[in-house]
């Protein structure tokens, strides 16, 4: 237990016979016994509303969903959710025998593995350009690059859907100026998922940029000058001095962005409904479709698989990006 008090304050009302432990105790709680009880009561009163909501809407569903994935719960059990039979790991077995689930997992993996590094790289590049490269209009660029982050994915997906219209959309119009005959992006199995990756990078690079900008501003100028005096070029200065200092912040954004990407749902739901030919079916959309078909147990099992993948990705990122010591 740490004690945080003004230095010397405790000494004035302390008995000289008190041992060091007693003394620490004294200092932390100037009024003992009754005051401590009062404090504990106040703490529980303050904690109660949160804990009641938390237990009902977080802990209970969390355990329940694991149990549900081990039973045969379906939509017909909606009113009698306890009247179901335990079937062990059958749902997971069924899940991993389902071709469609593998397609969903593969699409999700491609999405995360391509979009995450691209987002981090684009955000970092934007941050470095704004911090080191330019001196005027920084705020304009910062606001513009960050703007997509705050937007609703649904609204943005609707807008992109019209942008990508094969004949009436802006994208193919611009491509046409350069003599390129653009495809029907969202109706083509080769392009639908890459389009969503581009959209994800567009929407999220601002987050990475803002956090990296804050990190760059905390790099001490003296360190950079020392490196320059030692003859390090700009490139070397960045990779050897700046980048290692950014590593913790980069890790944090990689984890939060990665968790979001593993659950991507709104984009395919609005733009393609998982098509064409399941080429944009994400794992979350798969779980949602199982739920929509009344297979609650399969939806729960699929969500737990995604959850395990999220934990795995988080651990992996901590390993890869952790400070080397």
């Amino acid at each position: 237990m740490s004690t945080k008090t003004l230095p010397g304050r405790g000494d004035t009302n302390q008995q000289s016979t008190a041992g060091p432990e007693r003394r620490a105790e004294r200092r932390r709680l100037p009024l003992r016994g009754l005051a401590r009880g009062r404090q504990a009561r106040a703490a529980w009163i303050l904690a109660a509303p949160f804990l009641a909501l938390f237990a009902t809407f977080m802990l209970l569903p969390l355990v329940w969903s694991l149990l549900m994935s081990l039973t045969d719960t379906s939509s017909s059990d909606l009113r009698t959710p306890l009247n179901v039979s335990f079937i062990g790991l059958d749902n997971y077995v069924r899940l991993f025998q389902d071709e469609q689930f593998f397609t969903a997992l593969r699409n999700t993996a491609v999405f995360v593995l391509v979009a995450l590094p691209l987002t981090l790289a684009a955000g970092l590049a934007a941050a470095v350009a704004l911090d080191r490269g330019i001196r005027r209009f920084r705020a304009v660029f910062r606001v513009g690059f960050y703007l997509p982050v705050i937007t609703s994915i649904v609204a943005v997906a609707v807008v992109w859907k019209t942008l990508l219209e094969p004949r009436a959309g802006l994208v193919n119009l611009v491509l046409g100026w350069f003599g390129i005959d653009g495809p029907a992006w969202l109706a083509d199995t080769r392009f639908a998922l890459p389009v969503m990756i581009v959209m994800a990078v567009w929407r999220n690079l601002g987050t990475v940029m803002i956090i990296m900008l804050a990190g760059l501003q905390s790099v001490p100028q003296s360190l950079m000058e020392a490196a320059e005096l030692d003859g390090a070029g700009a490139w070397q200065r960045f990779w050897r001095v700046t980048f290692p200092l950014l590593r913790p912040a980069l890790l944090l954004t990689a984890v939060t962005t990665g968790i979001g990407y593993l659950q991507f749902f709104d984009e395919p739901f609005v733009m393609t409904d998982g098509g064409p030919l399941d080429s944009t079916l994400s794992a979350t959309l798969y779980a949602y479709k199982q739920f929509g078909n009344g297979n609650y147990e399969m939806a729960s099992a699929a969500s737990y698989v995604i959850f395990v993948l999220i934990v795995a990705l988080t651990v992996l990122q901590f390993r890869v990006l952790r400070d080397k010591d």
């Binding site: 809407f57 977080m58 802990l59 569903p61 969390l62 329940w64 729960s300 995604i306 959850f307 999220i310």
Partner: peptide, 16 residues
């Protein structure tokens, strides 16, 4: 529970 995605709880939450 900070890192637990909403997806994991949504089916029982719906039943609840």
């Amino acid at each position: 529970t900070l890192m637990i995605p909403g997806l994991v709880t949504f089916v029982p939450l719906y039943v609840l």
